[in-house]
């Protein structure tokens, strides 16, 4: 199936590696939070397949991303390391995202064309349009992918960005990672109309709904969107449907607004498990290889945890740096 979509056996194994890496790193961040080592974490769990599928559909040498706070797997696939993210989690000086200034999950990295983001949601969607416009002015052929949650798709900036990109036929992929909840508020109280993808009609470009638990389906949808964008045919909206497996953040308690049964049901469709089974069933992967990979990943995470915990804090006087250029 993946070969029909243009992915090699090696590529799908690599996709799985990034998904597992993100999951295990995410789990460690929760552990560190519960152990009182880091004050905050926010999770990508359940959404790794969307993010890795999208990353592999982009040209990771020249395309740009304007991600949101759940995109751990996306930024890993774009070049950031476990250590980079552990440094951010411990808010250390060497954190490449912000030098320890921002909360974890606020990605930004000039090395990989990952634009720095903030906490007010959806502001980055307009920035993505601006980067795409700059590329058009300079006659470059890169594509910009920007992502956000389904709750964020209600923001004015999201609408303004889609409309602007539609008017100017800009090479932007708008990806909504629909995980069913905006903190505690479920989809049906967030989004009117048929679905989010259908909103694209109003902006004059295609809107595609895709199963976010299937990284291959996401890959194909984003690949088509990227090809369309790169060939000058404008933006695409992709709504990738999944489920947020954990509370909104380490400060949230989801038991107050959704049932355990609902969460357990969703876990059975967890994209990571589904994809792993796909690899096993198609003889691309063995249990033994899985154990070896897991051991390798845990070693990398252990090393990064120790490194980041021991890494120096910023100096107090660093507070005053970089206000103005």
């Amino acid at each position: 199936m993946h070969r029909q979509r243009g992915l090699t056996d090696e590529q799908v194994v690599e996709m799985y590696r990034y998904m597992l890496l993100a999951r295990k790193l995410d789990e460690r961040l929760w552990l560190l939070n519960r152990a009182g080592k880091i004050p905050f974490t926010i999770s990508c769990q359940g959404q790794e397949g969307i993010q890795v599928g999208a990353a592999f559909a982009l040209d990771r040498e020249k395309d740009w991303i304007c991600p949101y706070y759940r995109d751990l797997a996306l930024v890993l696939a774009f070049g950031q390391t476990v250590r980079d993210n552990m440094l951010a989690a411990f808010a250390k000086a060497e954190d490449p995202n912000s030098g320890g200034r921002q909360m974890p999950g606020h990605y930004g990295d000039t090395r990989y064309r990952i634009l720095s983001g903030s906490s007010p949601v959806t502001t980055q969607v307009l920035h993505a349009v601006g980067i795409a416009y700059a590329g058009k002015l300079e006659q470059k052929d890169f594509v910009v992918l920007t992502s956000c949650g389904e709750g964020s798709s209600n923001q004015g900036d999201w609408h303004e960005a889609c409309n602007f990109a539609g008017v100017h036929q800009l090479p932007v992929v708008f990806m909504v990672e629909n995980n069913q909840y905006a903190i505690s508020v479920p989809l049906e109280k967030q989004v009117a109309g048929e679905n989010i993808a259908a909103r694209a009609n109003g902006y004059g470009f295609p809107g595609i709904q895709v199963d976010g638990n299937d990284p291959l389906a996401v890959y194909q949808a984003v690949k088509e969107a990227v090809d369309r964008a790169r060939s000058g045919n404008g933006p695409t909206l992709i709504e990738a449907i999944t489920y947020r497996l954990l509370p909104h953040s380490s400060d949230d308690d989801d038991r107050s607004y959704r049932s355990n049964e609902e969460v357990e049901m969703a876990k059975k469709k967890d994209g990571l498990l589904v994809f792993r089974n796909y690899l096993l069933e198609n003889k691309l992967w063995t249990e033994q290889q899985d154990q070896e990979l897991l051991a390798q990943i845990m070693e990398e995470i252990n090393e990064a945890t120790a490194y980041a915990e021991a890494a120096p804090h910023p100096n107090p006087t660093d507070l005053y740096k970089h206000v103005y250029v």
């Binding site: 969607v125 002015l137 008017v167």
Partner: peptide
Amino acid sequence: PLTESAIVGVAIGAAAYGM
């Protein structure tokens, strides 16, 4: 388009890119 947030937001993206 008649959208002040987009005027500034798009400009920020372009500025970050290097325009």
